[in-house]
Design a protein around this nucleic acid. Structure first.
Length: 345
DNA sequence: ACGTGAAGTATATGCTCCTG
DNA sequence: CAGGAGCATATACTTCACGT
């Protein structure tokens, strides 16, 4: 186990208090009449009673854009709330809303005071987006504060094994909240992510039928892949065997994912033994990435399997001649012998 | 078993500046 | 001047905590 999850608390969030307006706005002293005055660019072409307009159409366009991008419902809800919260602090005129710079400032200050820096940041981000759509020239004056939060967890084969053992211990204890079925689903799901490099979200929305157990391939279709780019990845012979056993025993619906998001996540929150673990489902993908490196796997192939962007990677772009077969050959060379020694109970 | 809102984080893309 | 390093920003996924 490495330094543990989480991030250096000291490194993050440079004083959000000053983050309301971008650097440029504060850099020119002549723009600041008093401590609380507004940037000249805003004052210059507007007086205090100038009002900006947001119409229903603007909001619809923003949401449409997100929908067109196929974002998760959860995320769409979040953006909707964010916009609504802002509009609630403006003047409603029926089909449109109007606000002044002062309204905006007081709204953002409220958010800043009440919520986390990350929440504040996201509010600014999506309000900017709305303003862009509405042609409101405030965008350049809004700065999203930076933050640092990188999960430096080192995760080894043993960590994954410990995790599966913990789950099986609960399973053996006949925990009423963790049936055999769920425990087995969890273990399979975790190992599929660990050996295929899938994201949690991808795993829990990928129908089982997209995993070809005989060939050991996983095809991730565009609507499942985070990037919208379809890709192919693989599982190890060990996981293949586990999957076979699982399918035989439970005959799961091939149109359903191996495990649902809730079944996978809940035990990690509800069960003390799992909640105390520093390892989470998302770390399985991390394991994949780290283990691949430990085994000196080819970096370009890793990118392709994980579905990372290959922008600016000339080398990778020329890898387009990689066929599924050649990818699998590389995969097997690196991960063919990877074993967790897990048995389904 | 599923919902919801907030907090946290991963990763793509943008931008600037530099170098062979 | 293409290509890349390095940082900033945009964007959306993941986890947590508290519900029903």
């Amino acid at each position: 186990m490495g330094p543990g999850p989480g991030f250096e608390p000291g490194l993050g969030d440079p004083q959000p208090q000053n983050a309301l307006f971008g650097q440029q706005a504060f850099q020119k002293p002549q723009n600041q009449k008093t401590k609380n005055s507004l940037p000249a660019t805003i004052q210059g072409n507007s007086n205090e009673s100038d009002r900006y307009i947001i119409t229903k159409k603007h909001v619809d366009l923003l949401l449409l854009e997100l929908k067109a991008n196929n974002v998760a419902q959860h995320h769409l809800n979040f953006v909707t709330r964010t916009i609504q919260r802002f509009l609630d602090n403006t003047t409603n005129h029926g089909e449109y809303w109007s606000f002044t710079v002062e309204d905006l400032i007081s709204h953002l200050q409220k958010i800043q005071k009440q919520y986390s820096p990350s929440f504040y940041r996201k509010n600014v981000t999506y309000l900017k987006k709305l303003f862009r759509i509405a042609g409101i020239p405030l965008e350049n004056h809004l700065k999203t504060p930076r933050y640092i939060g990188v999960d430096m967890t080192v995760i080894t084969l043993r960590d994954v094994q410990n995790l599966t053992k913990t789950i099986q211990k609960l399973q053996l204890a006949r925990d009423p909240e963790l049936s055999d079925l769920i425990a087995n689903k969890m273990i399979l799901g975790l190992l599929i992510m660990a050996t295929g490099g899938l994201r949690v979200y991808e795993l829990t929305s990928l129908p089982l039928s997209y995993i070809d157990i005989t060939k050991r391939t996983i095809s991730v279709p565009p609507e499942v892949a985070k990037t919208g780019q379809p890709r192919m990845t693989f599982i190890t012979p060990e996981v293949q065997a586990l999957l076979r056993k699982y399918v035989k025993k439970y005959e799961p619906n091939p149109n359903e994912p191996v495990i649902s998001y809730f079944s996978l996540e809940k035990p990690f929150i509800r069960k003390q033994e799992l909640a105390n673990q520093p390892i989470r489902p998302k770390h399985m993908r991390k394991f994949f990435s780290q283990e691949w490196d430990r085994r000196n796997g080819n970096a370009t192939v890793k990118k392709l399997l994980m579905g990372h962007s290959i922008r600016g990677d000339i080398n990778a772009l020329h890898y387009s001649h990689h066929t599924p077969e050649s990818l699998q050959r590389v995969y097997d060379k690196v991960f063919g012998k990877l074993k967790f020694n897990v048995k389904l109970l």
